[in-house]
Simulated assay, not measured.
Amino acid sequence: MKLKLGIAVLLVLAGLTGTAQAADKQLPQANETTCSAAGQQRPAGMRLAWHDEFGGRTVDRRSWSTVMDFPGRAGGHYHNTSYGSYAVDRNVVLSGGKLRLVTDNKPVTGTDPAGTYQYTEGFISSHDKFFQQYGYWEICAKFPAGKGLWPAFWLIPQDRSWPPEIDVAEWFGSIGSMHSGLASGTWPDVRWDSHWATGPAPTTGWHRYGLLWTADRITFTVDGVPTSTITGDQVPDKPMYVVLNSGTWANADRGGPPDATTPFPNSFDVDYVRVYSAR
């Protein structure tokens, strides 16, 4: 496995701009049967507008960027002080037909913004590459288990405004809970409509995490089953794009940051991302 991982990371480095050497620790395997084995689940009345099955050797630069471009970030590779991790290109790995967004505990000296960061993460977004108003958005994924881990699938407006933000599947490892929800309003008067689900299922198997978004309604789903719905004027009406990232929580709340029990390296594994639009 270590040899295969090394080859995969070198291939990623050939297609990305990262300069650090590949992680030399062994990642857990991610070759289990995934939710894509059942075939494409096309929503009624919709067409596939954009997707990535991650079958290549490097991340597709026509679809993805590894630099952050949204309000609230401190730089192109660091979100803000809620995070303990700095995004580096070497942590974006394609292996075995899957995207693996790695989190590791090797400190790194960053330049954007400048500083030393205890952890590294993998980050990709479709900003300027793909964005859409409404539709059905879905990933097939398996989340890592461990204290302080904070991987997520979320949507941000293409126009660089905030809020809104739609968190489709946001895993907090310290409390073993999945968050889905909507941030709306105007900064600093931000409203959160949130749903929490507690339990280890996201880390023990592959599941489909979806969002059905229309003009006045948001419905979150897991494996096609609705888990929560938001209605009202706070539902956004502007085009949004996909963000996928791993990473660590830095604050003392929500169970706190990683500790000696957290396994490193670990990865947020994604089999596919698919976005549908109305016909």
Rank of each mutant, 00 (worst) to 15 (best):
T221K: 11
S228I: 01
D193R: 11
D223W: 00
T221E: 15
G224E: 02
D237P: 09
L211Q: 02
D223A: 00
G232R: 01
M240G: 12
G224A: 02
H207E: 07
Q234S: 14
W192R: 08
D223S: 02
V222F: 00
A183P: 13
P202F: 01
P239R: 00
P226G: 04
G185E: 09
G181A: 03
H195D: 13
V225K: 09
G224N: 03
R208S: 06
S184P: 06
P200I: 01
D223T: 00
V190M: 13
R208K: 10
W187Q: 10
R208Q: 05
A201F: 10
A201G: 09
G224L: 00
P188Y: 10
S180T: 08
G181N: 05
T231L: 03
G205K: 02
K238P: 12
A197F: 12
T214N: 12
T227H: 02
I230L: 03
D216L: 08
L211E: 07
T214M: 09
D223I: 00
G181S: 09
D223P: 02
K238R: 13
I230N: 03
T227V: 12
P226Q: 01
S194G: 15
P236N: 04
S184N: 02
I230T: 01
W213F: 10
P239H: 03
Q234P: 11
S228P: 07
S194K: 13
L211R: 02
P236A: 03
I218Q: 14
T231I: 03
R191N: 15
W213M: 07
P188T: 08
R208D: 05
V242M: 08
M240E: 13
I230F: 03
S184C: 09
T203S: 09
T229L: 12
T231A: 09
T198V: 12
P202M: 01
G181I: 01
G181R: 02
I230K: 01
W213C: 08
W196G: 03
W192K: 11
R208H: 05
H179N: 10
T204S: 14
H179Y: 14
A197C: 02
D189M: 09
R208F: 01
P202L: 00
W213L: 10
M240W: 10
V242H: 09
T231S: 09
D237L: 07
I218D: 12
Y241F: 15
D237K: 11
V190N: 13
T229A: 13
L212D: 15
A201P: 04
T214C: 08
H179L: 09
M178R: 04
D189Q: 12
H207S: 07
T221P: 12
G199K: 03
Y241L: 06
Q234E: 15
V235S: 07
D233N: 15
F220R: 00
T204G: 07
T219V: 07
I218V: 11
V242N: 07
G199M: 07
Y209A: 01
T186L: 15
T227A: 06
R191A: 15
V242E: 11
G205M: 04
G210C: 04
A183G: 14
S228Y: 13
G232W: 07
T204H: 12
P236G: 03
K238H: 14
S184M: 02
D237H: 14
W206F: 12
G232N: 05
K238V: 13
G210D: 06
Y241I: 03
S194Q: 15
V225R: 08
